[in-house]
Nucleic acid binder design. Structure first.
Lengths: 332, 332
DNA sequence: TTGTAGGCGTTATCAC
DNA sequence: GTGATAACGCCTACAA
């Protein structure tokens, strides 16, 4: 390519890198030749020379077909693209044993940073990598055995607020249906549920405080909870999957039990179901921003240098979206 | 690293590349040193040396927060991961003008192949790249101005089948609500709708054959369609966004108008809404497989060499998921 | 303003 | 079975 333009490789490099000290005439002829030869600078070679500094970041997600993670990924992609970086996406299929392999594959691609939804019980294996200069930010859940930035929801506060709203609406027998006792988010949401009950001098009825883990049995658990004689007058779900199961269990007859879902979901508004909502895409954007801060890529409204601040935990706020479902015909 | 193991760089290369002609003893000491030093082979350097052959493929999608595209992406990722490849994901935000830039960014990363949901009106700009050896497969829609493999739904057939089912249920005034006249999928679905009506000697009533494009006005369009005096007795939607708008327009009073949605969606079963369903993840898997075929990566059940077959169009089947909504109280 | 030398980590080639 | 050498395409450093 360089020879085709009648200049040295270095001059081509200068042109494509946008360096200033090139004669306009030279620049033009180089650009012309580049166009003719379909020349595209090789970012791989550049990364190699500059010491493995790539423009890709890795995002390890559990299951992309979950709308929540998809929305987070959309936010990540968007924020990265704004800074000329791209997202290498890998999924663990929610298999804890797969996490390390998947992370390894991304690191072998020399990603410049790592975003991770932790699935494995322990992330200490990342410590060495972190020290070698690859920043790690966890999303949705904090890491275990690793000090890292994390972007998480106000799980407990959101659940507390929702539960309190149900209590204020007159409910006394409120149930919680979580999906997985091994997930810290589900635990925190139940904690918020319990503390709100306790604050009102109440407690969950036996069998009305469920945390799973349910794999395929979620629909059945919802049916059991809502079909019995002693069914609760209100339910708070642990996530959008649980919300879907509750709707399936109740059919379209949503007026008999008050429902608040954790996670907003499509049609929740049409069905009049109250939800604990938040901006999932913003979560992704904030996580990406955390990583970019560590990499020294300034934000648009750049003020201070954030590459060396101590590990941060960014709390993403939730808001209770009040819809018809807060009350119900069986309200006492 | 090589020196630490007391061998040459080439021997390390042989070990990590899994070549056979290495003494077991040597191999062990190399692996031991690699473990101790946190050694990770640099795929960038490898790609450089081997001529730009990377293990990443690029997937250009419109909007990841659409559950359909997210599911396709999940399928792509999964199939690629099975063969040790990773997915570089970029989004056009459904902006036709952004497509070329986004594709360019992926090509600069030297992706080995390209999966693309076409958004721009023309993809001929990819022809040179294709000839240079980067295979291109389009997903959901065929390319314009470019001969490439594509994986698409049986849009017309699916819509035809759904419409016929509504006719068979006794409906005569059936409406179609599509979201975008500039999308070939929406056009094909309406074509299927119209041909089914024609086959029965019917035609859509004025204003009951809508194709958009609606950006923010989709909810309003659904309300207008379903609120009037001359509202149809049945509706076929063009996609999941239109289905959501229809449900919002009808509220939970879904019994007054029969609805069939194109695209399955969460809770469609709970709401008793019939849908034209298909396996979106399988679509992604098939698209990835097309690309891998072109790259000479054999399938598990490898039979023939598919790298050089003429461009294929893979049709992904749809199936009508019959639920309560096929009939309605206003059925004639 | 432009060019030359050298090397990033890997692998192909050809020796030993 | 193993190693020395060169080269992939680019950039840093230093000349010219």
């Amino acid at each position: 390519m360089a020879r085709a333009a009648g200049v040295s490789a270095k001059t081509v490099s200068r042109v494509v890198s946008g360096e200033s000290n090139v004669a306009p005439a030279t620049r033009d002829s180089v650009l012309e030749a580049a166009l003719a030869l379909q020349f595209r600078p090789n970012r791989l070679a550049r990364s190699l020379r500059t010491g493995g500094v790539t423009t890709t970041i890795g995002f390890v997600v559990g299951d992309l077909s979950n709308p929540f993670y998809a929305a987070v990924a959309a936010g990540v992609e968007r924020e990265l693209a704004r800074h000329g970086m791209t997202m290498l996406l890998a999924a663990t299929e929610d298999d804890p044993a797969a996490e390390r392999t998947v992370v390894g594959a991304l690191l072998a691609e020399r990603v410049r940073g790592l975003l991770l939804v932790p699935t494995a019980p322990d992330q200490s294996y990342l410590e060495a990598e972190q020290r070698l200069g690859t920043p790690v930010v966890t999303v949705d859940r904090p890491a275990h055995g690793l000090v890292a930035d994390s972007v998480v929801l106000e799980d407990a506060r959101g659940a507390h607020e929702a539960t309190t709203a149900l209590i204020d609406a007159g409910h006394r027998d409120i149930a919680f249906l979580g999906t997985s006792g091994t997930r810290s988010t589900q635990q925190h949401r139940r904690d918020g549920f319990r503390s709100a009950l306790a604050d009102a001098g109440l407690a969950a009825q036996p069998g009305h405080d469920l945390l799973g883990p349910y794999d395929d049995g979620l629909d059945a658990a919802a049916r059991d909870l809502l079909a019995g004689q002693d069914r609760p007058t209100a339910v708070l779900t642990g996530d959008n999957r649980a919300s879907a199961s509750v709707v399936r269990a109740l059919g379209t007859d949503l007026s008999t039990v008050a429902v608040v879902g954790f996670d907003d979901f499509e049609l929740a508004d049409a069905l009049g179901i109250s939800v604990v909502a938040y901006d999932a895409a913003a979560m992704g954007r904030q996580a990406a921003r955390c990583l970019l801060d560590r990499l020294g890529v300034p934000a648009d409204d750049a003020e201070t240098e954030l590459a060396d601040v101590p590990p941060r935990t960014v709390l993403v706020p939730t808001r209770l979206e009040r819809r018809g479902s807060l009350a119900s015909t069986s309200t006492p």
